[in-house]
Design a protein around this nucleic acid. Structure first.
Lengths: 201, 201
DNA sequence: AATAACCCATGACTTTTGTCATCCCGGTCT
DNA sequence: AGACCGGGATGACAAAAGTCATGGGTTATT
């Protein structure tokens, strides 16, 4: 029997997936959590063979949870199941120790297959997505540029961003300007949109 | 037997929900579609008793699909199943002829219950959400204000928005300024964010 | 030791945006 | 008829945002 931990914030989706997996004879859902920061504790007590993690979750995202899990419970394989096929997500997931990456757009029967292969030590990634991730690279943005873009995404003005990041207003504008040019955007919001869409945020 | 049409763009979620519903003796999933603009055709040929519609879908959103359906096939009840409990969504869904409104955050067993009640002619809405929708009203924005906010949400500058809407730049700025003040936002992007989050976009 | 990134900061400058007052027009409500 | 609202427009002005040159600091890489 393959023991599975299921982390997904939408209750209905989580339970539907659980019932789907329970139809398989060789799979057993041993834990369900709805927050990223509950993954580790649940995994420590339920000892799953595979952790199936959504990315967008409250508390902590699935990639951060994967990193925790890979460090504290290296015997547990990690399979990311997410809505968005952003190359940056895939890259970061793999860097955080995930073994597989599956989209919610994939057919349901792929899920059980992917879990079995992940449990067997294989890496399961959509080849097309992998190619795209490799070709796009890590993205042109530096750490600070990503930070200011994320902050500007909340609608605040440059002054507030400077306060929050303990920077001068001029510096914030410089980072923003640089990011805008790298992304060939029209303004910082456009830049934030582009970066987020590419998974570079 | 209650015949159910299932419209949801994420294949895995759709199939998982379908398998969940198939466990119920009195429910039968007679059609599945993954785009909003496929709902009507599928409904006409499969004659469902209840259409279970997601809102965020390619082609056409679930609310528009609900309006079509209510007009062309009034005997089919409509149940909206969505991620976001935005009051504006609920309001627009009900105005479009939906009979029920359910969140993906709700427990999975509520789904079958809601379908049965909807099929029986009841209106199924989370009471808390309904209260919030009533208290917030339709939102303070006018048609044009919503239009400019949606356009600005794409990152374009005022000039491009003016072109697209065939307006003067000054007029666009006036509408934006007015929307910003009504929403107590700091700039147009903040305003767009607020309006979208409230479901007023 | 030199080079190259990245980070932080200023100051000066241009462009974009937001605000306000003031028009005009066409509906609608009283 | 008059008041009101939404839409459209203009011009003027102030504030915010973006660009550019420049300088100093750190840390890797060569």
């Amino acid at each position: 029997m393959i023991r599975v931990l299921l982390a997904e914030d939408q209750t209905m989706v989580r339970q539907a997936l659980a019932s789907l997996l329970d139809l398989e004879d060789d799979l057993e859902v041993v834990a369900q959590v709805e927050r990223g920061d509950e993954v580790l504790a649940a995994a420590l007590s339920s000892k799953p063979d595979v952790a199936l993690l959504d990315i967008e979750m409250p508390g902590q995202d699935g990639i951060a949870a994967a990193a925790e899990l890979a460090r504290e419970l290296p015997r547990c394989r990690i399979l990311i199941l997410t809505t968005f096929g952003r190359p940056g997500y895939l890259r970061r997931a793999m860097e955080s120790g995930a073994s597989g990456f599956l989209l919610k757009d994939a057919p349901a029967r792929d899920l059980a297959v992917a879990i079995r292969r992940t449990a067997g030590g294989e890496r399961v990634v959509d080849p097309q997505l992998a190619a795209q991730a490799l070709s796009e690279g890590k993205g042109p943005l530096t750490w600070r540029e990503r930070e200011v873009l994320s902050a500007s995404n909340l609608g605040s003005g440059i002054g507030e961003m400077a306060d929050r990041l303990h920077l001068s207003e001029g510096t914030v504008r410089n980072h923003l300007s640089s990011a805008i040019q790298k992304l060939e955007a029209r303004n910082r919001f456009d830049a934030a949109r582009i970066a987020e869409q590419k998974g570079w945020l």
